[in-house]
Design a protein around this nucleic acid. Sequence first.
DNA 1: AATGAATGAGCGTTCATTCAT
DNA 2: GATGAATGAACGCTCATTCAT
Lengths: 192, 192, 192, 192
Amino acid sequence: MARPKSEEKRNTLLSVAAQVFAKNGLSASTASITSAAGMAEGTLFNYFKGKDDLMNTLYVEIKNDLASTMLCGNPKTDSPKDVMHHIWCNYVAWGARNPDRLAVLHKLKVWEGLKPDIPESTTACFDELQKMVNNAIACGALRDVPYEFMLAIFASNAETVMHYIKQDPDRADFYTEQGFQLFWSGIAGDLH
Amino acid sequence: MARPKSEEKRNTLLSVAAQVFAKNGLSASTASITSAAGMAEGTLFNYFKGKDDLMNTLYVEIKNDLASTMLCGNPKTDSPKDVMHHIWCNYVAWGARNPDRLAVLHKLKVWEGLKPDIPESTTACFDELQKMVNNAIACGALRDVPYEFMLAIFASNAETVMHYIKQDPDRADFYTEQGFQLFWSGIAGDLH
Amino acid sequence: MARPKSEEKRNTLLSVAAQVFAKNGLSASTASITSAAGMAEGTLFNYFKGKDDLMNTLYVEIKNDLASTMLCGNPKTDSPKDVMHHIWCNYVAWGARNPDRLAVLHKLKVWEGLKPDIPESTTACFDELQKMVNNAIACGALRDVPYEFMLAIFASNAETVMHYIKQDPDRADFYTEQGFQLFWSGIAGDLH
Amino acid sequence: MARPKSEEKRNTLLSVAAQVFAKNGLSASTASITSAAGMAEGTLFNYFKGKDDLMNTLYVEIKNDLASTMLCGNPKTDSPKDVMHHIWCNYVAWGARNPDRLAVLHKLKVWEGLKPDIPESTTACFDELQKMVNNAIACGALRDVPYEFMLAIFASNAETVMHYIKQDPDRADFYTEQGFQLFWSGIAGDLH
DNA sequence: AATGAATGAGCGTTCATTCAT
DNA sequence: GATGAATGAACGCTCATTCAT
């Protein structure tokens, strides 16, 4: 190979694209991305088939980043509440640390052109969580709610929290804990 | 141009724009909107300063529609739970009835170019609700959570419900009630 | 209508395109055409779906022009030789008068992207000629050669003549007559 | 770069280029050629100064191939008719055997960018033919027509024949002979 | 000599907006 | 007021060419 395609350049493009899209919207030009990345306009197309491909790739990349961050450092505990609290905190902290990536994620989620069915390689990682949740439901520790639905509420509540933290970063911990308690109280079964 | 001749044409443009934006994204051309509305390309600019203006106007219009729908038929009851349940149901039903407008609302919310502080002429309508909530918090009927924050959780949960209803319309009632219970259990104070 | 699409502008575009293509090849940019026509870049696309459409339209337009020119002023005579001589002269004279259009015709004929089956609306005009040729063959006045094949030889010989006239315009008449005699001697049956 | 290492690679490039140009037009990318040839993009530029050079070289190469094929196996006869018939058949047979090269030749002939006067190293081979023709004209065996002009008619008629053979290969012999008779009858002097 | 990633000028096309009718 | 042809800046993308490896 004359010069191998550099993984680093690819990553730079993705991360710069996230910043540019966050700042200027998805309608930001590919030229503005390559220029911000210090590359020639054409270089982007060596790494991605087109703008669409870049955007879809970015979507997957952010979702994977988020998913692995959420599960990172899983505590050795059998308590569903503790496990979910851990994940919750990881989630919210990631959002606070990566406001650009979070913003882009939201934009991409409502983007026409998002390839369907890219998504759920992600959720595979959550198998263990699902098992735990189902067990907890069976023994009455959790309200009998569809797993997917619960997860969606979890996510939307967490993102509401992130939204508030972005506007008022000083009270990050407050919102994080308040939010989780709201979620948990809603979800917890009668036994607790 | 403040009060154009035909209020009807203006409304047609807004409602057609919502459909077109929902289907094809905010990048849909103004020509595709006027064409779908059976008007000439230039006509749009007799009613709106430009595409941006159309979009901002549409955003406000949808938000106002939603707000007034939510409060519509307010039940004569002092129970915060009943009041919120009533609003919740109105909200969810509106979303189920107006999937296009809901979709556009989501797209516009993450649109760069949304004029900030178009704002909350909307929330004025919710003054009474706010008073009720604050009273409920004071007497322990509701968890002590910032009003705005609670509203945001309320909205995001409701929208999660709408999302599920869109995919599985037959279980609309189930999701509506499950969702509200989750929300209410989370929000309710220790007294209940 | 606000301003009707002007047939004149359309014709200007076609004729300027022929000149530009003749001079710079089919790879000439659409911008170079509109600029030479004194119009804005976008205007071309009001009149043609795209560059391909312009080129296909131009091809048809030139062929039709040529065909009607060839048949123009048909002499009242029953002699196949006289009729073909008349057409031959019209053909060659057109080529000498319209070197650009002739050049573009040649370029377009070998252009990938030429829509198939556009062509032969043209040949309909030649029905009478075909009848005459077939009669002449039947009575031995013309060699028994497929009509289409004979026409093709006719055309290619005529274009060879045009080619020579372009390089040596002073001897136009000489080449025209020489060429026709070559063609006619080849095609004539034994009776003549 | 005059004599690159691998003559074979150079020839491969030329012959693959002919196929690709025939199929996709002269606007085919250099990358598509090298890729079809199983080489790296840059390799083409080790053998040719640029795309233009490749195309001009290809033009000359095909013309030389054609010329030597036409004269190949020259029969020991003094009859101009037999000699021309021999050449005619070689010509037509070459075209039927090499439709791609024939197609490219036509495309290149109308290509802007063809270097003028690459020229007629080719025609040198035809010196003997020219002598024979001039003699035949002098003694009345051939019509008194400029040699170059006669050659052009010869070529255009032959190519018309090739065109018909391409569409109807089963009647190749028929068209070949019909075509030659047409040509010869046209060209022959009064003595025959 | 061979490679292919990097380059950036140039292209066809779109589209919000203007304005003559 | 309604129209839609005219406009031209801006875009995504291609591709011949270079050159570090």
